[in-house]
Amino acid sequence: MAESIQIPTMADMAAKGETPEVLFWVGCAGSYDDRYKNVTKAFVKILNKVGVSFAVLGPEETCTGDPARRAGNEFLFQMQAMANIQVMNGYGVQKIVTACPHCFNTLKNEYPELGGEYEVIHHSTFLQQLINEGKVKLAGGGEFKGKKITYHDSCFLGRANNVYSAPREVLEALDAELVEMKRCKTKGLCCGAGGAQMFKDAEPGKKEVNIERTEEALETGAGTIAVACPFCMTMMSDGVKNKEKESEVKVRDLAELIAEAEGLNG
C-alpha cells in the first residue's frame, strides 16, 4: 500500500471546524468482529479512493440498541438510542451510511421518533450510487466476470425496508452471472440471526436455519455467496463451513467484492 489511509473521526473534524458529507456508522460487528472488520476496511478503502468526504464516530459510537429492542428490552434500547442521538445531533449529523442492515433499520426508522432525524442509507445503495455516478468504474469486472454469484437477501434490508435492487445492481456491475436462490427477494429465507437470535442458541428444532439457507445457496452452484449484513455473513460462513465447502465457496460482502474488483485489497 502506497500511502496509509487516515480515518477521520467526527471529533477530529469538529476540532478543525469541518463537517463531513456523510457519517459512516461502523456498527459493533464492523468494529469488533474479525471477519466483518474486513468489510469495514474494504468500504473505507472505496470511500477513500473515490474521495467521499466522510468521518466515523470512532470510540464515541455505541450499539444502536437494535438487539436489545428485538429481545424485548425497550428500556435499554431507548437509553442507547438517546445517547447516540445526543452525540450525533451534537455534531450536526445529516447523512449516515452503514454496512449493517440492523443499524440501518434502527437509525432510519426508529431514531426519528426519539429525536434523531437523518438521511440514512445502506452501503449497498451507496455503492450502487457510486457506480451509477461513474465514481466506481469497475472496468470489465475483473476477476468476477462471468462467475456465478448468488445474493442472500438480508431480512432487515429486503422485507423490512424494500431494498432489493441496489445490492443486485452492484453485483451486476461486476459483470458476474447473478444466480438467484429459489427463495429470494420478498420470499428470501432468513439466515437465522435476526431478532436477536444472533445472541443466543436456537430453540429446539430439527435443523438450524443457516444450514437450510446454506443448502439452498449451494444448490445454485455459485462460487460466491454475496451478503450485505454482518449477521448473514456469520451465519452463511458457518453454514458453508458446516457443509465443508469453504475451499470452493466464499461468503463475501458487497463492499469486499467491489474493493477487490477495484484492486484495493493490498
Partner: peptide, 11 residues
C-alpha cells in the same frame, strides 16, 4: 424466543 423477526409472515 424462536422468532427471527424476519417479517416473512407479515409479507
Amino acid at each position: 424466543n424462536a422468532c427471527t423477526s424476519c417479517n416473512a409472515c407479515v409479507e
